[in-house]
Simulated assay, not measured.
Amino acid sequence: MARILAVDDEESILDIIRIGLGKEGHQVSTVSDPRKVDMLHLDYFDLVLLDIMMPGMDGFELVRRLREATGVPIIFLTARTDQADVVRGLGLGADDYLTKPFHLDELRARVDAHLRREGRARSQVLTLGEFRFDMSAKELTCGDRAMNLTPTEYAICEFLAVNRGHVYSKEQIHREVSGLDPRGEAAAVATHIGNIRAKFQEVGMAPIHTRWGVGYLWV
């Protein structure tokens, strides 16, 4: 499994990428506004998929910024086939490009090829204030204290922390964490979050907030 960041202003494209690569076991995080890409925690990801034509900040500028922060493979997804654009993108640090519309089989093949080529163990650590996620060991610490979380509790925390600031319903959390049909079991998420909050309270922290009638978010 790889952790993949997809940046595209077309939500339909992001849905295709998330579902298509998710079936291969990859964890896909999506961003529709390139200005909202978190440059401080790019080491979390193994590969980036990036559109060129986006409002606010185009893919050329974003890949330049990405290359200042990470060395992971970057694949352009673009409707622009002009050779000068391709050369410019590769010159700025992209590793490959795929022309829209693309077939999922080709996307999967390109992604797998770059992940195999990368072929190196990378430290997967996410630090948010006092919290430190060791995503290889699946451990969470707060300051010097290890949080005694169950695997499911850890998975919920990691998902919300990686997507911090975004609100997710119980159904969405259950689907993203377990990969199962959420019907009939999503209510258990509220119980897990209650247990997580009790453990966070022991260290005087409360990073998971509730948006009543909507869901939960890490702030």
Rank of each mutant, 00 (worst) to 15 (best):
L50K: 06
D51L: 03
I52H: 05
M54R: 12
M54W: 09
M54V: 07
M57S: 02
G59I: 04
L62Y: 06
V63L: 02
R64M: 07
R64P: 00
V72F: 09
T78S: 09
R80Q: 11
R80C: 04
D82V: 09
V86M: 12
V87G: 00
R88F: 00
G89K: 12
G91Q: 13
G93N: 04
D95L: 05
D95W: 01
D96E: 14
L98Y: 08
L98H: 05
F102P: 01
F102S: 09
F102W: 06
F102Q: 09
H103S: 12
L104F: 03
L104R: 03
E106N: 08
R108T: 13
R110N: 11
R110A: 10
L115I: 09
R116E: 13
G119K: 15
R120F: 00
R120H: 10
R122Y: 00
Q124V: 14
Q124F: 05
Q124R: 15
Q124P: 00
Q124Y: 07
L126S: 07
L126C: 04
T127P: 00
L128F: 01
E130R: 14
E130L: 08
E130Y: 06
E130W: 07
R132D: 00
D134T: 03
D134S: 06
E139W: 05
L140R: 04
D144H: 10
D144I: 05
A146M: 08
T150I: 11
T150L: 13
I156F: 08
C157Q: 10
L160M: 08
A161Q: 03
V162F: 07
R164Q: 13
R164F: 01
R164W: 01
S169W: 05
Q172D: 05
Q172E: 13
H174T: 08
